[in-house]
Design a protein around this nucleic acid. Structure first.
Lengths: 373, 373
DNA sequence: GGAAGGATTGAATCCTTGA
DNA sequence: GTCAAGGATTCAATCCTTC
């Protein structure tokens, strides 16, 4: 050996920029120089603890996350693993650096507590609201429609972290960006395939990493991802003119990531300008008016000509004679019509006038206008 | 003393229903009978004060916040408090009961991990997206626009918790309710005032509790709130015909809550009715349809796409080729599927149309509902 | 060629009751 | 405790087939 004879794990003096290290993430991080990284993005195993197979109502089988890398023998080994990789990551951060960790309710509370215990200072928790999540097929819970990201500085007194407030505001139609982000999951052409199967069970969408990197790094900054997978972080870093270091244990993923990133054409400095996205008018369920007390359970609604009446139930359905159902369904049935727009059909009394319930919906939408749909 | 002389904290045999107990929540919970509560809603202190004044358990002030180890000391009393009140709460829950806890990133990770460590089984984490959050005035972070609720069963193997799936679906325009809820914060007339100032710093909106109670309780269920505050949980419980027990230490809040709840006019039984899940409806064996002559022995049933056919036998079983069995079993076998709901799969011909046999079951159920007893 | 309809799929802790 | 049987249950987006 020509160097580091007395050091079992020699610390390198330079970062291997824009490369993927094929190794265990803790061992690899411990070889990198302390205080050298501007941002860490980590997508650790979630420890899902799935039991039996799950089928959709059409009897097709759900392809769950059964990979060995997501299996732990309980909370204690998972916590120990979390403690170790977070400590290694913290050592690598510059004092002005920040860390992002993504997870679900299976693991995020354990990760979040450990982040606080190690002295990180949480800046935000961010909710990735999925536009197209997998439904709850058995009707036993709420649709698990989001994941949580934690954004934290190295410590409470370390100021000077990067937050590109104006860029994020511009990304959000000139309204301050909120802690809830509405983005699709990774599908279609973006989803990497390995023959017929998906290449990775949990590939993250590029739009998510795009927003993280625009928000919390500047061009030329170094981004480390210790659970690199198929390299979404590296691809977006290259696109946006940031440097990256990826660490990934599985050789198959490493190969896919390298190939993927090589194809990315970096944006020019002037092309990094943000693009605006259109917003649809948000859907407002009738039940929301009931929950908010704008319409009371038991209240009577009538049509504009007062030929039909219906009473409101606690869950936002209407009842008229034998007919129970949505404002649209009951409106159609009482008229003997195939369809009905309940919003314009049903009215309530306000100061002696009959007012369509759609007026209340408009009120709710006006309140929501500040929020990102 | 006239009772419980030898018991420092006598356990009461009955719950003091629809009352507010003025006491420390742990002491009060320890006096209530085990396994007596259907749902717990808890809005514990968020531990927001950490950054400005950090104190050790002995109340000495930590000098500066540069030392991560000291910060851990700051978390310790909060964790200990969390452990104690959660344990007391868990003792009170029925095996079929569930708990809801609301918090922000300051405390929710610590609470969530403790919930898991005590053996609760998380069913969902719910994001309350605020329509009108306070902006981040200094432009240093994302607008903190949400809070997190954790919904958990008493343990992983305890089934039978209440989830009114169909009611929630109805509240949401007939698509299943997601884990992200979009609701306004508590303002306007709903916000209780004590003279000029708001009566409580963190009063929760009634719409939030309305949804929690409709989702996870039935009329008559007992709801416990150990951090009762100004009694939003009690007010919504009374409105919806649930029983409540509130615990609150501050006499000022207790008085406001009692006064507030007394003004609530409960909904009538028919007004608070919600769409029931089919699981809760009375079981009607297929054979009953045959006995009643609604389906004839020898009659042919087909699936909606007319790919499969089966003949009805006198005992209410079906036969298709070699396969004999229940409507479900034969439906599954002919499709080569693991399971099948025969009620929606099999159809009969009526006036040229194919109608699912479930329509006949609904007819029978309607007749049963009309007959008393 | 294009529209319409069917098939596929996604980080999932996904049933209840009675013998 | 186990095991068998009844029967309840899906949304959005993309891709493919058919007309």
């Amino acid at each position: 050996m020509t160097s580091g004879d007395n050091q079992p794990a020699a610390v390198q003096t330079d970062l291997p920029l824009d490369t993927v290290i094929e190794d265990d993430c803790i061992a690899a991080m411990n070889r990198l120089p302390a205080g050298s990284v501007d941002l860490i993005f980590a997508d650790p195993p979630y420890n899902l603890q799935l039991k039996d197979a799950l089928h959709r109502p059409d009897n097709s089988k759900v392809d769950g996350v059964t990979d060995a890398w997501d299996r732990f023998d309980g909370f204690a080994p998972y916590d120990s693993f979390t403690r170790d990789w977070l400590a290694a990551a913290r050592r690598l951060l510059k004092d002005t650096g920040t860390i992002w960790v993504i997870g679900s309710y299976h693991n995020i509370f354990r990760v979040g507590r450990e982040i606080q215990d190690q002295g990180f200072w949480i800046l935000n928790d961010i909710i990735w609201r999925k536009t197209n999540p997998m439904p709850n097929f058995r009707g036993t819970r709420f649709t698990n429609a989001h994941e949580t990201l934690i954004w934290a500085a190295k410590s409470a007194d370390k100021s000077g972290y990067t937050f590109n407030y104006q860029a994020l505001k511009a990304l959000n139609d000139d309204v301050q960006m909120r802690s809830d982000w509405h983005l699709p999951i990774c599908t279609g052409a973006e989803r990497l395939r390995d023959g017929e199967r998906k290449a990775h069970a949990t590939q993250k969408p590029e739009a998510l990493l795009y927003r993280v990197l625009v928000a919390a790094t500047n061009p030329g900054d170094v981004v480390l991802d210790p659970f690199f997978g198929t390299g979404t972080t590296g691809a977006m870093a290259r696109l946006l003119g940031r440097r990256f270091v990826g660490i990934e244990r599985e050789p198959r993923y490493v190969g896919i990531a390298r190939e993927r990133i090589a194809k990315v054409e970096p944006l020019g400095a002037d092309e990094r300008a943000v693009t605006k996205s259109k917003r649809k008018e948000p859907r407002v369920p009738f039940g929301v008016l009931v929950e908010r007390g704008m319409i009371k359970p038991g209240q009577t609604l009538v049509d504009g000509k007062q030929r039909h009446a219906a009473r409101v139930r606690a869950d936002g359905t209407l009842i008229s004679g034998d007919v129970i159902g949505s404002i649209h369904k009951v409106g159609a049935e009482v008229q003997g019509a195939p369809t009905c727009n309940g919003w314009s059909f049903w009215c309530f009394e306000a100061k002696g006038d009959l007012v369509p319930i759609d007026m209340l919906r408009q009120k709710v939408r006006a309140e929501m206008a500040g929020a990102v749909g």
